[in-house]
Each structure stands twice: as structure tokens, then as C-alpha cells.
Amino acid sequence: MLSYILRRLLQFIPTMLGAVTVVFFLISLAPGDPARIMLGERAQKEQIEELREELGLDKPLVQRYGIYLLNVVQLDLGKSIFSQRPVVEEMLELFPATIELSLVAITIATIVGIFLGSLAAVKRNSPFDYISMSGALVGVSMPVFWLGLICIMLFSVILDILPTGGRINARYFFLPITNFYVIDSIILFFQEKDWSYLTSSLLHLVLPASVLATVPLAVIARTTRSSMLEVLKQDYVRTVRSLGVPRFRIIRVYALKNAMLTILTVISIQFGLLLSSAILTETIFAWPGIGRWIYTGIAARDYPVVQGGVILIVGIFLIINLVVDVVYALVDPRIRITKKAE
């Protein structure tokens, strides 16, 4: 297993190289000049030329590509053109926010989705089935930004029970240690015996995470239902039924593990999409994460930021895929054996 993981990690290198190359040239093709945008419309030609030289934008494309590649290998993704801070540094600061949000969202989606989907499969063609599956359809089709705004209206403005945005009450003096605010506030709780940080950071998570969870939740619920129905038809389910295993136990123990194979794939794809598509949710809820960072980077033609962001997302997808393949092998012994035999 270990050698398998190592081999997969080695395969990351060409994939990443490809991604870096594609992103670099695609962005260079995009219209707009960062120097012009930075200096504003009234800038003199000489000023622009000067800045271009300073940023290294005057060199030929291929040369710029070579320099960039060399830097990337040394984990130097350049400096943000606007903030002048290293991209890697900004990334490390913002990425935990996105991870925190996405992890909570995918956890909600997975637990609720699998529960609803299994129940719908067991109570097939019942009112519960119809209602939850139509709900799932609505969940898939609902635009996240619209749902987000409606939720802010309802829960923050009208009912006033949840904050509109941000990660923690802005009045709190809060020096992040890990940048995972939930973890930070737990640490603070142990240091200062004060609950308020934790409650505040959790309350700030509720709305964005729930909104972000709607689409994956709906997809997971529908997949769970269909793969569960498929599994419940199998001969081995009939066998345990004929042996007197109670229905609930059949579903929870025997059928779910088989159905999990399909569900896992969907969860992983959804998680990858979540991380990369958190842009809208992060923008609406003023969540200082990777999504918002890339969004502003694109708007400002901040090449290093956009490139860094895309490389990060590619890396996330690769890692998620690897994790899922490993989990597959843990769930399905048939995969495990073939890998041993390799």
C-alpha cells in the first residue's frame, strides 16, 4: 500500500507540470495589462513601461515561463502584484479558511445526504421518498448565490439570529495561530476559559456551510438512494434476509458498505468542486478564503495569484483522488487484492 501511495505521488509531478504550463499560457493569452490596471487610466506610457519592467512583464513569454517554472519548483509562486506579499504566504493564510468551510459543508452534506438517501431507498415510493427527492432536485438546481442572499435576509436581517458574514465577531481581539478559527478558538478556550470565541466562530460557520452544502447534499442523497436500491436487489442481501438479520441492520451494516463504493466517488468529486467553487459562497458571506482571493486576483489581472490558486486547486483534486483510491481499497477487498498483485 505504501509503495502504491508513493508511486501515485510521483505521478503528481507530470500532472502538476502540465497544469502549471496550461495555466501560465492561458493567463498570458487573457486580455488586459496588470501594469495598466494598477496605475489607473491616466497613467503615462513611461510609467507603465517602468512598472512592466519592474514586474518582469517586458521579457519574452518563453523566458518568463522558464523563470516561473524554476521558481515553482522551489515552492516560490511569486509575489502578488497588488499586495506585494508572497503568494505562498497569502495562500497559507487563506487556505485554512476555505478548508474549514468546505470540511464542515461536506460533513453536513455527507451525513445528512447518506441518511436521507438511505431512508428514501428503504421507504421507496412513500411520501417521504417523494418529498426528500424533490427537495434534493430543488437543492441541485438552486443557485448558491441566490440561496445565500435569501438566507442572510431571513436569518441575519429578519430573525437576527446568525451573523451576516465573516469568520468571527469582529470586535474580538483574535490572533489566529493555525488560521483554522474553530481550532484556534478551542485553544483560546483552554487558555482563557472563555466560550465566546468558539460560539462566535461556530455561529459564523452555520450559514455559509449550510448554503455551500446544499448542492453536494442533494447529489449525495440522490446517489445514495439509487445505489442503495441497487444493492438491496442483490443476492447477498437476500441471503442475510433469509438468515434473519433485522432489516435495519441489513441496511446499516451490509448494504451501506457496498453502496459506499459509489457514494465515495460522488463525495470526493463534490468535495473537490466545493473547494474550488466556494468562490460564490465566500464572496457573499465575506469569508476570507481561497475562492474570494482567486476572484479578486482574476478581476485585477494578478497573474501570480491566479496561477497560484489554480495550482492549489489542481493539487487538491489530485490529493482527493488519491485519498479516495486508498479509501476504496479499504472498503473493497477486491481492489485491495489486485493492488497487492501488481
Binding site: Y236, R238, S242, L243, G244, P246, N258, P333, R334
Partner: peptide, 23 residues
């Protein structure tokens, strides 16, 4: 459920697919 497997049990004609593959 109390009777199945306890007082009466059954074997089937498809041994290839009647055992759960992941256990």
C-alpha cells in the same frame, strides 16, 4: 425475522453472488 435463520434457513442457487463481496 425470529424464525429465519434460526428455525428455518435457506440456501440459494447462485453461490457466486449470494455472499457479500466486501466482508
Amino acid at each position: 425475522q425470529q424464525i429465519r435463520g434460526k428455525n428455518i434457513s435457506m440456501i440459494f442457487q447462485e453461490p457466486m453472488s449470494s455472499l457479500n463481496p466486501v466482508f
